[in-house]
Design a protein around this nucleic acid. Sequence first.
DNA 1: GTAGTTCGTCTTTTT
DNA 2: GACGAACTAC
Length: 735
Amino acid sequence: MDVSPILSPLNDPQRAAVTAPLGATLVLAGAGSGKTRVLIHRIAWLIQAEGATPHGILAVTFTNKAAAEMRARVESLLGTSGGAMWLGTFHGLAHRLLRLHWREAGLPQSFQILDSEDQLRLVKKVVKALELDETRFVPREVQYFINKHKDEGRRPAQLKDGGDPTERTLIRLYIEYEQTCARMGAVDFAELLLRAFELWRDRPQLLQHYRSRFQHVLVDEFQDTNSIQYAWIRLLVGTTGFPFVVGDDDQSIYRWRGARVENLQKFRSDFPQAQLFKLEQNYRSSAAILEAANALIANNSARLGKELWTSGARGEPVRVYCAYNERDEAEFVLGRIQQWIAGGGLRRECAILYRSNAQSRVFEETLIQARIPYRVYGGLRFFERAEIKDALAYIRLIANRDDDGSFERIVNLPVRGIGARTLDVLREAAKGAGSSLWRAAGTLLAAAGDRATAGRGAAALHGFLALIERLGRDIEGMPLHEQVDHVINNSGLIEHFRKDKADRGEARIENLAELVSAARGYEPEGEDLPPLQSFLAHAVLESGETQGSEWDDCVQMMTLHTAKGLEFPVVFLCGMEDGLFPHQRSINELASLEEERRLCYVGITRAMRQLYLCYAEQRRLHGVDSYNVASRFIQELPPGLLEEVRPRIQLTRHGYAAPASGRRAGVGEAAGMFRNPVETTPGGMRLGTRVRHGKFGEGVVLNLEGQGPHARVHVNFEQQGAKWLMLSVARLEPV
DNA sequence: GTAGTTCGTCTTTTT
DNA sequence: GACGAACTAC
């Protein structure tokens, strides 16, 4: 068999790792050193040279995006389908396992998954039900407490209060929360992992089955694994499997959500015979950028030790800009982006990175004013939007009447006169009978019916139950998307949102329509689950990345966390001020300060050719001005690498911020800006063109997204501000 | 039962 | 400066 396509694109250390003899293997791979490539080629190698079959391989990642990309690349490398391979996120694979073995795992067959928001609501409910003071037992903190223990594999029974009454109450809450979940047939994210772990731990014959099936276990981003994820992997590997893990301790930035860098060390002590490979050659950044990154990260203690190098040129120096304030910072960034574009560069090659989301606003305003299309990453994803969750709650309640979370969410949405009083009675009854709200409502109404004194609340409640029953009957036998469509249109949701503030409601109704098309386009992965169930799980597990097509050419804006794994020719690291980055809350503890430093390292290593570090002497944050000094991370870089950018003499309107007055931005300037990639929609719409809308007046096209009937356009209207419009719906005329 | 108003909070995020 | 929660007034 010809393995040259697998091996020839690799450098020596990469090839050594890919072809390592079967056994435990640890690959320490620096930023931009081809980490994912090694993992992908290893899989191909196992199949083509080691006689493994896709059936015998389990590969795990952290995000759906990474999993999808990996599958596609493996398949293209092998030229065959890797369908039999288990490749997915930890949560996705755990879910798959639990669906297959729901009985052994002690779950109802139709168990549903709670996302973090659902979980928080439930925790709140439990805190209330136990009549605890919400200021003393803050739901968010209780949620954190529960998840922390689940992430470490601990059930309430294993916890000791140590005589501390607060601890005791927290444990009680954990117990009560678990019972509520069990009653609802609900499983949160951490529970998926913990259950999957316990399933194997407590069923030796089942574990044995999977051990003999999955000899090859590959883990990406190993430094991000938490305790239970590692324990799960170890259980599967046992003494006979071959774990192949890839990670970078210097890029561990998720300690705060349970990730354990120590797992890298643990792996080495658990598998003392493990082979270690280091990938240090970087193919992404210029030598100057790498030198900065190396110098910065050298300030951290307890590293496994790695130094990036490149055979490439030194490149441009790292530039530092000290701005007067955040507005000036944004103007500076804008100017450099315009320079880049004028030099023939693309907008999408520029990334503005920042520590916290709140920083994006000034950049957005500045870019809008300059009529430069941009895209902000992060923010609410599709399936997390309130209206989508409302619609799904109807569907969930129809599928499972005992789903109290969904019941509470929609019982009075749209308002149907079921207020707090009625609900209190209902909750009491449910608690007394140990049943779900739905059942309690049924019993309550039956009892009240006899007395014929059914009050307003009761009548409304009756109406609600009847509605759910009717919808349930209506949609039986319909294809998935028609079910969704029917529920949306007959639940009163549409009318409810129509009453919302004009454009807000319009957007929500559009999203609901989008939900129907998501259902139409949905292809269930496992045949074992009813399509509706499968769709609901999909909605929670893959909250839906807003599909950024290659087609867009926008300046990219995101937090440093989101930027991990990406690369850009031009990177602006903004808000480099002590207190903001490193964040105030991380400054006093060494471990968190080091994590901030790793975050900065991640940011620096995103840059391929140009890197700018910007900070503002004065910054308005949370409505108040603060005065800051440059981030200590800038001080930690060798001065010889840096080039201070002199503040420009203020010729331009400084701090000028007339709202949406794009009109006067020089014509020539705009023409130059949009000359480069000529993108048009099917409707002949073009970035930068002026359009008129019947209701919103005139505006400028900032951005285009999607194709065909789904094409959307982002228009900055002079009066109404920026809005997204469906091209197929909105009537827009070029001016 | 709901609409309007003030108060307090404000890293980072995937599943 | 923006959002949600909790409180108050109708």
